[in-house]
Design a protein around this nucleic acid. Structure first.
Lengths: 225, 225
DNA sequence: CTCCAGGATCCTGTAGACGAAATGCAATCG
DNA sequence: CGATTGCATTTCGTCTACAGGATCCTGGAG
């Protein structure tokens, strides 16, 4: 039942300016990542269009973009289905993210300045505080911002773009896991900052590798399937 | 001048079956990579639609996909322009490709079997032969297939997807360079095969890093801007 | 009771049309 | 003479309409 996930209360009404397809894209992505639209669910263009108050065309374009980015599967003459992640795929995605994040850390180590380090320290402080307060939402947000900051220091737009896509899908797959390991994560962040301050690219790479690798282990412990 | 690049002779008529937007996408991508459509050129939907014998909608969808993949820039209410690569961007892309290819080599080293090795050897033989014969087109094709084989051995679909996109853009930017270093490339390939046979992931990684790094150096030597 | 055939229905893929925004040029005013 | 404002053109963004194909349900026969 589609209407189950598209009641008026849960759908952010399109308000902000900008191309319509863009807003539809963001809305659908939000609905998918938030599990309002569940994996395997059949997305009907006309239904989405009606519920969002637009015509089919912007919905089509949004769906196709979602398709190229791996969020939905677009079966010919049949329509769009929310992608169903497999364990194998989740594993591969995490492998790639580990790789990309590690490289970002390495690049960041070669460019880190005092100001950037200070910003990371502050995020770390706030992250630990949120972890102690068990404010899960805030922990996740700060974690994302921490990684984004490292990425910014790496100064590689292409790398940032890729991590943005891969990372978001990883967070989607692993969101049940992410809540588990709040505190340990921030201790590792401290180590990373130290490596960045010293400009030690190799150590930063290694730490980031371990950091994301821990996430993988948590995942497999949680789902020993 | 759009008609300059879209004369009947240079436009492959859409013939093969499949979704129309897909064929349009491939056609445009071919036109871009082959330099028939030059960087900065303004692509008008209606013109493309007319010349390809379809309506604007499939063209729109193809252009948007090209936009998300970085081939064209889609300026709002103005249209699509073939992306103009900057030196900085080319550098970043090459960095990422180096990283991804190196990881592919590492994974492949852990999974290489006799059959796969034999296939690589054969591609290497044929590649060297083509290089000696100075058959540039064939060298490029075999080089692509060689890397594709390594990628297949890595057995990571996500990684393959990313390399596919990044690699194609790198080949676009560096195509003037690629023609320069035909022979040296294949010697390095031999070394890579040896590392894969020994299952030495670290060595395979290092070789692949050097391999793509050499491409970067060639580029900067050719364009000391 | 099961299986196959036929038809109805739904959905996608594509085409064509309308309205809106941005651009470039030209005329006018300071 | 230069800057600015208004207009005309072009092109995109969106909507509506139609045709083709797949799916699903129903009804009947074995």
């Amino acid at each position: 039942m589609l209407s189950k996930g598209l009641t008026q209360g849960t759908v952010p009404r399109l308000e902000r300016p900008g191309p319509l397809r863009e807003r539809v894209y963001e809305t659908l992505l939000e609905l998918i990542t938030s599990r309002a639209l569940r994996p395997g669910q059949h997305l009907v263009e006309s239904e989405l269009a009606t519920h969002l108050g637009v015509s089919r065309q912007p919905v089509r374009e949004a769906l196709q973009r979602l398709s190229t980015e791996g969020w939905v599967d677009l079966r010919p003459a049949q329509g769009a289905f929310v992608h169903e992640p497999t364990d194998e795929e989740a594993d591969q995605l995490l492998t790639v993210r580990t790789l990309l994040e590690a490289e970002a850390a390495r690049l960041a180590a070669g460019r880190a300045d005092a100001e950037g380090i200070a910003g990371l320290e502050e995020l770390c402080d706030r992250g630990e505080a949120a972890a102690r307060a068990e404010d899960v939402e805030r922990v996740i947000e700060l974690n994302t911002r921490f990684h984004a900051s490292v990425l910014e220091m790496a100064a590689n737009a292409v790398l940032a773009e890729l991590i943005g896509q891969v990372g978001r899908r990883v967070r989607w797959y692993y969101s049940p896991v992410a809540r588990q390991r709040g505190m340990a994560s921030w201790i590792e962040h401290r180590e990373l900052i130290a490596a960045l301050r010293d400009g030690d690219g190799e150590r930063a790479t290694r730490i980031m590798r371990q950091h994301t690798e821990h996430t993988r282990r948590s995942y497999h412990e949680l789902r020993p399937s």
